[in-house]
Amino acid sequence: MSRMRNATNRTVLFCLAAALLGAGAVLASATGPVRDRLPAGWPRLGTDRVWLDGDELGRWRDEGWWTPAVIAALSVAVLLLAALVLVQVRRGLLRELALGQPEVTLSGPALAAALAERAGAIDGVDDARVRLRGNARRLRARITLTLRPDTSPDAVLHRLAHGAVAEARAATAPRALDADVRLTVRSHRARRLR
């Protein structure tokens, strides 16, 4: 994930959290148990405060534009949030990669499958999973390897770096390919005897 995208996500989440926290604090200060425990200098809402009385609500209902406007605004907000989530999910995955000529492309899932197959063929590797992310200039491969309990991680990493990752870098040149490798060990559980 790029730094700009990460900073944007954090900023949006912080603003949303601050708005929700502020609204919750205002609403909670109107209740008796919370209002009585607030420090003396803090503003308090009165217990008799009515947010929207019957007459005010009746005037809003008489306006013909009010209900459709609220529904339209909420619908636009939901659609924008859904589009933001969809962009966040789809943006990072590598679909296709142009190789020099416009008509020659490399499929991202095919490259990930080939890299996973080569990584899974290394001695001591029980399972290999690869996800490719990035853009046309810089690629990132997230490789998750499950090792057998008696396997040396140093040897596996050396073979992976000089074998499968080196071949993937040659295939995607001149683009940079960064590899994040996560190693897990398959636990060997003792069999239960009855």
Rank of each mutant, 00 (worst) to 15 (best):
1 M>P: 12
2 S>T: 10
5 R>P: 01
6 N>E: 15
8 T>S: 13
11 T>I: 10
13 L>N: 03
13 L>V: 06
14 F>D: 01
14 F>S: 08
15 C>H: 09
15 C>Y: 11
18 A>T: 10
20 L>H: 08
20 L>V: 05
23 A>Q: 06
25 A>Y: 12
26 V>D: 01
26 V>K: 13
27 L>M: 13
29 S>T: 00
29 S>C: 07
31 T>L: 09
35 R>S: 15
37 R>I: 01
38 L>T: 13
39 P>Q: 14
40 A>S: 12
40 A>L: 14
40 A>T: 14
42 W>E: 08
44 R>V: 15
51 W>Q: 01
53 D>R: 11
54 G>R: 10
54 G>M: 09
56 E>V: 06
57 L>I: 00
58 G>M: 00
59 R>S: 07
62 D>H: 13
64 G>P: 07
65 W>Q: 08
66 W>V: 15
70 V>L: 15
70 V>S: 11
71 I>V: 09
74 L>R: 08
74 L>S: 09
75 S>Q: 03
76 V>Q: 02
80 L>I: 06
81 L>P: 08
82 A>Q: 04
86 L>A: 04
86 L>G: 09
87 V>S: 01
87 V>G: 05
88 Q>W: 05
91 R>E: 11
99 L>P: 01
100 G>K: 04
101 Q>T: 14
102 P>C: 00
103 E>G: 08
107 S>M: 10
107 S>N: 13
109 P>W: 12
109 P>M: 14
110 A>V: 10
110 A>K: 09
114 A>H: 12
115 L>Q: 06
117 E>V: 11
120 G>P: 08
121 A>N: 02
122 I>T: 01
124 G>E: 00
125 V>M: 01
125 V>K: 01
125 V>Y: 03
127 D>F: 02
131 R>N: 05
132 L>I: 00
133 R>K: 07
133 R>W: 03
137 R>H: 07
138 R>P: 01
138 R>K: 06
140 R>Q: 12
140 R>F: 05
140 R>D: 12
140 R>K: 11
144 T>E: 13
145 L>T: 00
146 T>K: 03
146 T>P: 00
147 L>D: 09
149 P>M: 00
153 P>I: 01
154 D>A: 07
157 L>G: 07
157 L>S: 03
158 H>C: 05
161 A>Y: 11
162 H>Y: 12
162 H>L: 15
164 A>K: 09
164 A>S: 14
165 V>K: 13
171 A>L: 14
172 T>W: 04
173 A>C: 10
174 P>M: 03
175 R>Q: 11
177 L>F: 05
180 D>W: 02
181 V>W: 06
184 T>Q: 09
185 V>H: 07
186 R>D: 01
187 S>V: 04
188 H>T: 04
189 R>A: 10
189 R>P: 04
193 L>M: 00
193 L>T: 05
